[in-house]
Design a protein around this nucleic acid. Structure first.
Lengths: 347, 347
DNA sequence: TTTTAGCACTTGAAACTGTGGAGTGCTAAT
DNA sequence: ATTAGCACTCCACAGTTTCAAGTGCTAAAA
């Protein structure tokens, strides 16, 4: 994978350029490097090497007389060299675990909390999303009689997810009707996806309920709504403000188009879906590697987490000159922490 | 309330200035007014009137040779004249009702949806929040036995709110334990706030549960968490991007400080709490009327909604030159719509 | 052969300048 | 009381200059 044309010194210089640019956000010059990074050679030598690196496509000059900026190729090299080696660094793993310790139950809260943590740990905008798979299945229905025209329908799904909804009825029922109805649901609808709940099955349940058949329609509406909610894709962002600190986004119109994508969840899901491969592990998409024009100066990093049927991911969005080593480390830990926390809870 | 020094023509001119500035965002000149607004007088006359208005504090000149900009006093006059007269305008009430029609049950979803609607109707950032009152009381507990180490605890609160949580136990129980436990909860904890659930009561329940007394601690933890969640203050924002379209926020540093407040929910709650008086009706806080420095160029408009024990509010955040007539109209309708929708549902 | 010092060259950012237009206030005429 | 006319002010904008940073190249040094 490593480019055989690169000498050791060139790699050293390249890394120095990337590091410096990540910190300053400004083009890096030869003099600056020779002074700060204690290379044992003069600016002129570094210039020569940088010229080679530019020719090979690792560095770019914004204009004739500016320093150099890493190309996407350079970031890619940098990141690839980084992945897999971050685990020996020292870290705030204690804090991550601490902050994850309290209960994460519903997917919705997991997403919010995950994006919040990603943002707070990294100085970039945090993102957490789940993909819509349409696979939710009810394990068990329970009904709780509230009054003649209301009852609570409790649906237990896989992965410890429990949803309860109040069903209002336009007519009176007894406690026994609720009991019989949930019995029927448990016989006919358990382990079906929303799509598999076909009309004939519904009609059958109506028949069983006899004179109380009208309970079925309002209840089914609630069941469909709940399952659709679980099945649908969703994205949570946190810390949008953090983007503003980077000069890359100081142009308000650019910022606007990026935030436009981020805020329209459908569009964002498109971007992610285009990128996302199902495999686990850290995904790093640098600049134009993203399949979207407004993200051409933006890096997207995330890690998938699979938990039973549900699949979700957590990561960050920021400028191309992202602090890759820190972010990759953090996101990896955060994802692992969430994963572990959720698995434990299911035990 | 109306300033007696103002002549009818001055009021007319002032209104024209406010309207024009709301639309363009730029200082308004005498020539522009005389041409567009069909006053039957020359620019010079308008200039004289504007000079008076400036002296009285209704207009401000950014610099010697620019047009005039309305002062906060002018906006205040404009808004006060507006409030109470919006009800005869034509409107999109149908659409509001249409988009509210689907079930709003949990407070959390109400907030999200309300802020989303406020943003989508008005071109400003939508905001919805509930104040933390610490008044949640459980009407009824129900338990559903899941397995030897798990059961679902269903808590019905006032206002149709139902929360269910899975409780994991470090030891085995039977279905009968769950039944007895919920019975005890219904005797001792119903209609208490979280604060009122004192240690003696808990101990009593433990005694009643006898050998299964260890069920109490994990369950109480869940109950506390749930009630705290309901009791705590919360804010939802939507459409933060909309702020970016206004030149008022094209300065990134200004934008940053404002967004900083908006994103940190605690800070935002402070700002709102400082402003919010419990009375219903539309609240309009213009510029420095807000008790926060970063909001000195920003207007905050919201309307309170009281529903049983819960108190929440919906509104928008935007530049001082807000389209007040439209926003006041919309927020009022939106709040009424939500109110009606929620009350209906409780019937 | 590699490294380095020196130098001319390029270029954008920032400071500066000049011009034009928009808007004003004042005065005198209506 | 209103308005036309006019001199004045001042910002926005475009063009210009200056400056510093950084480069590539060449020739000398290691």
């Amino acid at each position: 994978m490593a480019d055989p044309r690169l000498t050791a010194r060139q790699i050293q210089i390249l890394k120095a350029v990337v590091d410096a640019h990540i910190n300053n956000g400004e083009p890096v010059g030869s003099k600056y490097l020779s002074e700060t990074d204690a290379f044992n050679c003069s600016p002129a030598t570094i210039r020569n090497e940088m010229a080679s690196l530019e020719q090979m496509g690792y560095l770019v000059q914004p204009h004739t007389s500016a320093g150099r900026v890493p190309s996407e190729l350079a970031y890619r090299l940098y990141v690839d060299a980084l992945i897999g080696q971050y685990s020996q660094t020292k870290f705030e793993i204690d804090e991550i675990n601490e902050r994850l310790r309290y209960k994460l139950t519903e997917m919705d809260k997991i997403l919010s909390e995950a994006s919040r943590l990603a943002a707070s740990f990294t100085d970039y905008t945090g993102i957490a999303f789940k993909s819509g798979v349409g696979k939710a299945r009810v394990n068990r229905f329970n009904g709780i009689f509230l009054g003649p025209r209301d009852f609570i329908l409790v649906m237990s799904f896989d992965d410890d997810v429990v949803k309860s909804k109040t069903v209002h009825l336009p007519f009176s029922i007894t406690e026994d009707v609720v009991r019989r109805f949930t019995e029927a649901l448990n016989i006919y609808l358990v382990n079906l996806t929303a799509d598999e709940m076909s009309m004939p099955i519904i009609v059958k349940i109506e028949a069983i309920m006899g004179s109380a058949g009208a309970i079925v329609h309002p209840a089914m509406k609630v069941i469909y709504e709940t399952m659709n909610e679980l099945d649908s894709a969703d994205v949570k962002l946190d810390g949008i403000t953090k983007l503003l600190q980077y000069p890359e986004y100081s142009d308000v119109t650019k910022l606007r188009s990026l935030l436009g994508v981020l805020e329209e969840k459908d569009k964002l899901m498109d971007v992610i879906a285009a990128n996302n491969s199902p495999e686990d592990g850290i995904h790093v998409y640098i600049g134009t590697e993203n399949d979207s024009d407004v993200m051409k100066d933006t890096t997207l990093i995330f890690k998938n987490i699979t938990l039973g049927n549900s699949q979700f991911a957590v990561g960050v969005i920021g400028p191309k000159r992202m602090n890759y080593s820190k972010v990759i480390d953090m996101i990896s830990r955060l994802a692992n922490g969430i994963d572990r926390m959720l698995s434990d809870e299911n035990k």
